[in-house]
Design a protein around this nucleic acid. Structure first.
Lengths: 226, 226
DNA sequence: CAGCAAAATTACAATTTTGTCATTTATGTG
DNA sequence: CACATAAATGACAAAATTGTAATTTTGCTG
């Protein structure tokens, strides 16, 4: 997932870039329209975030030039004002979404995910979601409530297994088999330990717990209140 | 994974129940057709294992009644005899599989897994492919010419970055930024080293090289002959 | 509520990964 | 071909991950 940000206000650009990078996107930033057009032409982006007010060539012209060259990358417009007429005209020009400054990162992120879903329904498949936890399988990124969580491979594979079998209790032998490839009798308690380490990262700091122990059986991640 | 066993022979029922439970399934057992229908209606099962010979209401009637109520849970029939006509008729009635007594537990288990696979199509997975190298992002598996390759996280992220920008030369700073999050000047040669380690695993044993160095610029993975 | 077994937790040791640095090899240029 | 520079390589140390084992806590059952 590649995103191009065309924005001259360094503060906004940095803020958006940081957030997107942490959410697992690849992000390029340019500070004027000319550079933006050049980047947009030379690489395949999934979304372009375009500020309307830019030096040299404003956002309107950039958008027009983009569409004139048959580039139909999704464009999200950042505007300083909320003006319905402007909005309508921008959509006519081929904008895909419109966001008024100032905005929160989660707002922007929601718009991007919505666009992604709209245009590439299968791309969303690489994102798994449970309650407020999301996994980007491709980028190997996990986050809960927009907070990035760093997992090790074992923790990640365990989490993935539990989520792919959501609401199903998996016993230790099944987990040992799928995550560690151990399909013979074993005295190890590595599942317990890894569950512990995973919980520390994805559950300890949150009120709603995702991982539940089922005494005598195993573990389960639930998205329902049980 | 919930399974309902409708079987009056205690011995067979116990034997199947034990095996399935130890394999991680939730199992309910009832000993006659009436109870079976009642259970099937009140809970969502993934598979129903139905004996043909039952007191009160035989397996035929149970199956018919099930399908009449639009319950299309997968049904595996247990029959005492092997009869092609019977089999055909049962499939007409809506059975999903057919097993002749006596059977081994592993036979039954294989049928259950087959049905599972048939009804729940491919798990959510994203596959990336370049030449003869493929990446299963979800399972975190990489292979080339069907040989499994074990990568570390850094190697994996580097590979992914190169592949997501296939045929594009990425310079060291870009790579440092995207894989290591280092977006300031740095004297490190970790990119070179990790490229080396990656090559050892994905290129050294193969004639066609995927990773190419571009002197003065950076690295690229190509799927075209250059 | 006592006793037991399961699960959680912690500390520790073994192993693997990661990054640095020094050295060697390769490539392009005059 | 000699020089300069870039890239490749190998050895090492630091850091992180992984698995084991012992201990504590929790939950169930009589």
């Amino acid at each position: 997932m590649n995103i191009l940000i065309i924005e001259d206000e360094t503060k906004t650009a940095k803020f958006v870039q940081k957030g997107l990078f942490e959410s697992g996107y690849f992000v390029d930033v340019v500070s004027n329209g000319m550079d933006g057009l050049y980047y947009a032409a030379s690489r395949q982006y999934d979304v372009i975030i375009l500020d309307l007010m830019l030096p040299k060539m404003d956002g309107w012209k950039v958008l027009k030039a983009l569409r004139a060259t048959d580039n139909n990358t999704n464009v999200i417009i950042l505007s300083a004002i909320s003006d319905t007429d402007e909005k309508v005209k921008l959509f006519d020009y081929g904008a895909d979404d419109y966001l008024v400054k100032p905005f929160s990162f989660s707002e922007l992120h929601a718009r991007i995910k919505a666009i992604q879903k709209r245009t590439k329904p299968e791309a969303i498949m690489q994102m798994l979601q449970v309650v407020d936890l999301s996994i980007d399988c491709v980028a190997f990124k996990v986050s809960r409530q927009n907070k990035t969580i760093e997992l090790t491979i074992k923790e990640y594979l365990l989490l993935l297994l539990l989520i792919q079998n959501i609401n199903e209790v998996l016993n230790r032998n099944t987990i040992l088999d799928k995550v560690w490839g151990i399909n013979f009798e074993s005295e190890t308690n590595i599942v317990d330990v890894t569950i512990r380490r995973l919980r520390k990262k994805i559950d300890d700091d949150f009120d709603v717990k995702l991982i539940h122990s089922i005494r005598g059986l195993g573990y389960v991640i639930r998205d329902e209140v049980a």
